[in-house]
Amino acid sequence: MLQVNNLSKVFRSEGGSVTAVDDISFSVDDGEFASIVGTSGSGKSTLLALLGALDSPTNGDIIIDDRTITGLRDRQLVDYRRKTIGFVFQNYNLVPNLSAVENVMLPMEYAHVPASERRKRAKKLLEQVGITDEKLQRKPGRLSGGEQQRVSIARALANKPKLILADEPTGNLDSENGTMIFDLLHKLARSEHTTILVVTHDLDIAGRTDRTFKLKDGKLQKK
């Protein structure tokens, strides 16, 4: 479902240029749960940003379900981020003055889901990740890190994306919470038949995924 051909990203600045992603090609199957590992600065986050159309590549193509993402117009890119991708960030990135439910409803509003459906679906998703009752109305500042990450997983699933991109989702959590979040992602991906690409430096976690890609200096290392 995901195919990447000769993808490169070069950051240019006064001090020279950095090739963060260097001529990468790979593909991921439908419903697959894959992980990306690599040392700090190896280009994992950059690759994820390119896949989620948060940034544009210097070279190469990204093809999802036979649709080439690279070269799309701005408006189509917004639509792609909205409907095809669900993002989970290392530092949760919830909107601070919105409650848990409102955070999960936000992507649905952007995708023009009818208002009445939004709240229902948001509550259902939050229930699936274990956020219930009065925690639904809490703002991120009053939730624990693990709880915030669970809300952010619910938010990523809001518009039933085909591909979930998670950048070190357990990076800020202790191992117990990390394992719980990971299991949750795994379970939901299975039940919703969603493809997942998760960046991690936890080799235990990587070992439990269907496939692991290893990045070094922006290059993909064949195992």
Binding site: V78, R81, K83, F89, V95, P96, Y110, R155
Partner: peptide, 12 residues
């Protein structure tokens, strides 16, 4: 960053 997040989750 909040604006970036909104864009990342599909805001125009």
């Amino acid at each position: 960053r909040e604006i970036g997040v909104m864009k990342a989750i599909g805001a125009s």
